[in-house]
Design a protein around this nucleic acid. Sequence first.
DNA 1: CTATTCTACTGAACCGGGCAAGCGCAGGGA
DNA 2: TCCCTGCGCTTGCCCGGTTCAGTAGAATAG
Lengths: 347, 347
Amino acid sequence: MVKVSSGVGPIPRATMGDVAKRLGISKAAVSYALNGQPGVSSETRMRVLALAKELGWYASSSARALSGAETGVVGLVLSRPSDLLTIETFFIHFLSGVEKVLTERGSSLLLRVIGEHPEAEINTYERWWGERRVDGVILVDERHQDLRLSAVERLGLPAVLCGGPIKGSSLPCLWTDQGADATKVMEYLVSLGHGRIAHVSGPPRFVHERTRRRGVRRAAKTLGVVVETHEAEYTGSQAADVTRRLLDQPGPPTAIVYASDVMALAGLGVASALGVPVPAQLSVVSWDDSYLTTLVHPAVTALWRDTPAYGALAASMLLDLVDGRNRGRMQLPASTLNVRETTAPPA
Amino acid sequence: MVKVSSGVGPIPRATMGDVAKRLGISKAAVSYALNGQPGVSSETRMRVLALAKELGWYASSSARALSGAETGVVGLVLSRPSDLLTIETFFIHFLSGVEKVLTERGSSLLLRVIGEHPEAEINTYERWWGERRVDGVILVDERHQDLRLSAVERLGLPAVLCGGPIKGSSLPCLWTDQGADATKVMEYLVSLGHGRIAHVSGPPRFVHERTRRRGVRRAAKTLGVVVETHEAEYTGSQAADVTRRLLDQPGPPTAIVYASDVMALAGLGVASALGVPVPAQLSVVSWDDSYLTTLVHPAVTALWRDTPAYGALAASMLLDLVDGRNRGRMQLPASTLNVRETTAPPA
DNA sequence: CTATTCTACTGAACCGGGCAAGCGCAGGGA
DNA sequence: TCCCTGCGCTTGCCCGGTTCAGTAGAATAG
């Protein structure tokens, strides 16, 4: 045990044995007293609790975990290139929701940020589970043909998938109805009078992007309008490139739906640079909402969902699973369309 | 031990005892072999390593930690209201740097996100240390009269402070030279010809905001110009309010320096809404740089520092401290001023 | 040919809790 | 008086590693 070499000596950390010795009773009695179990008189219990408090005793998490209990730690791997990661306000909102529930229920979060290497992520789960470091994990960013699902099932590692629903698996999962969201956006734009609409989506390796794309196509068909989907990474520069191409072509779209707030902002920047007035000549919608959309002028119309609640639900489903209660598949409430200043009838 | 109730049974996790039994040797021999210690023949070592790999053996972190070793976990508490947290791209950049070093050196990060309650943060450290959950912690956001410093010293909890330098303490710390940065910004603005400059700072409970303010005042005096500092929380709306007040007054400033990128963006939004052209009539500088500053049009002139490197250094200093090497006080390289489109000579 | 050293191992204690089994003693019923 | 029950506590083993103190046998030295 290495100690910080500060002037004041560190407090020696008390053990149950110390408490027992000081009171002249056995370790077991102390254990029963501290855990609220029967087997000790209430007088002894009081004395134990008082002394434990005085000594600043905490149960060693390692010792607890070693004797079969849970670790009280939940793992989360963020597997995106770090420059993309910074772009997503989604995660930090999500994390704050996760944290809230974990804190309430006495757990903590082991976080790992890695580049986008699916094997590295699966390796992390293997290690964490092998080392008994976590009780379970939250899987975010469902991918097309996601290898992580079979990996956690093979390991027997309790996990909750943010995505789905998945067939033929008892893994609990929770998801947003992207199809309903797509319909909501498309109906709104069509009601304004738009007929040439572009959809700048994120990369199709993410399942939710595929689902959105399908939803958009289906809604367009139903509504009798034309929609083109263009794929881009979740970066401002890629979104800007796509936007430039869209606006430079003859017969440009009158409305563009972007997969994220950052992409929408980049699109706005391009429109402004090209002298295309928003919303007079171009309407812009963002599929994700955040403080960014109201920070800029004009403020961006966006689909909003309660991301902290999403994280909170994921965490609570995982803790329940660890406790032996599989809550199965849960669908989140549909998003709300926050209409702001970037949408209007076409010129 | 609760198991996920999936169709396939979970892999039983092998222990050193299993390996020993299967090879007909003692646990101790297995331990020596796996840890690269002398005391076993290379032939036995090979057989142990091969079997361990085959069985998918990992050392139980709890058992390791229990027998005196470190836990391999570093703690970090983010203590800001969650709505402010989302605003700061700083943290996620910082975290990615921290993670990089921790991963390289085989540690992981225990993250806790709490509201701004200093006692809650200190409680967390007490618990973590008492429960032997972490080897050390990284303290971010140095506050005025920071109670956390004495708390970690009292506990003997290894810690690194992002801030300082602090007198009369051997706590390792690392900081940016805010004074030099202030001078850099002010000299640049004055060289453009600005004489009425406003500084919209963050809340003074953060030491770095006080240092910046002092630096700005000092530079202004040296350069013979007038600077007013206005305090605001790190939110877009507060920055917007201050900006409106500044621009509405008679003889408004010709340049505004904002404490963060988000605040600068909010300021830009207000200027745009009020019809004040940037940079023709107002120059804008952000004290923090991020992808946001280049996303908008016009792109924002900003002070840039390598935040991931900051996090990486903090993590490596902490791991060194845990290993018994106190690297003392370290100053980070000065920031670079990225001149973009929001600064020009005053009208 | 013995004395010493070294190699390659084994056995057991230990870390700090959890928990099953056992044990002495008091009180109650027959 | 004896038996039974149950309270309140103790003993002791378990979890899965680490580590120290041996020890048998082979190699080397004198």
